[in-house]
Design a protein around this nucleic acid. Structure first.
Lengths: 135, 135
DNA sequence: CCCTTAACTTGAGTTATTCAAGTTTACGAG
DNA sequence: CTCGTAAACTTGAATAACTCAAGTTAAGGG
């Protein structure tokens, strides 16, 4: 299924800007809004930064992109969605690396005691220093 | 051991503002910087917002308070530190609730594949809707 | 009781993000 | 196909959280 179908299925209109955003996020590696903006303009020419914010917001609400926000750094977006994977973030350089879920399918989705909450997502970030910053 | 000793042991000077910050964070429930500021002024009178930022930063570096930053909301601080507990955050009202670690002591500290990172902290946030917002 | 330097104050600056108002465009209805 | 409308986009200003900088105060070792 193409990106256009995914958009339509989510009740969103298909525009060049949105297709370019989806491609850029998929090709990129946890890009921030500015990075997405640059990628989009390289593909389809001038698009305003606000359009990128707006579209990423819409895509996120529709579940087509995932948003992560490591503390102290701007929000980042990725295409892998719905597979409950997590992130390693480097304290030095801020690089984000995917980690698959520890034990099988979705063991991290449920807390021991949910305190009455209806939980729909688990957001797990491991903090450390990446190989190239360890030198 | 009193807060003053904790501060000294961390190589920090003991001031009324810092003691008040530590008390406020301990008494409060995941307060943001503004909440801490209010609590501190109630205890010791006028203290600048920047002093609160500065001190919280120092206390955090010293490991005396823990900082959490749920996406989309300002940073929050708590006194429970070093016990690897996690958080439930309400999507509606933003309330933060502590959850103890799922399986025993520190099972969540290590990812399945650390990709060469030296991991020192795991930050786990469960997103959902709290009991009082479910009505 | 000084002296040094950490801690604090005041005030301005930065950055990521949002708000608002007006214009354009996708796309379903006719 | 073309028309109307709401979604999408544009431009520009505003906001919130936080940081930076320069000068003042005060903790605590000598």
């Amino acid at each position: 299924m193409g990106d256009d179908d995914l958009l339509r299925k989510a009740g969103l209109r298909v525009t060049a800007a949105r297709l370019a955003i989806m491609q850029t996020v998929r090709d990129g590696d946890h890009l921030d809004v500015d990075g997405v903006h640059r990628g989009v303009r390289r593909r389809v020419g001038q698009v305003s930064l606000q359009a990128v914010y707006d579209s990423l917001h819409a895509l996120h609400r529709a579940g087509l992109v995932r948003k992560i926000e490591p503390m102290g750094s701007p929000a980042r977006y990725e295409a892998r969605v719905g597979d409950n994977h997590h992130h390693l973030v480097c304290r030095r350089c801020g690089t984000v690396t995917d980690v698959d879920c520890t034990v099988g399918v979705a063991p991290c989705l449920e807390p021991a005691d949910d305190a009455g909450y209806v939980v729909d997502e688990a957001d797990i970030t491991f903090w450390g220093v990446c190989p190239s910053c360890q030198r």
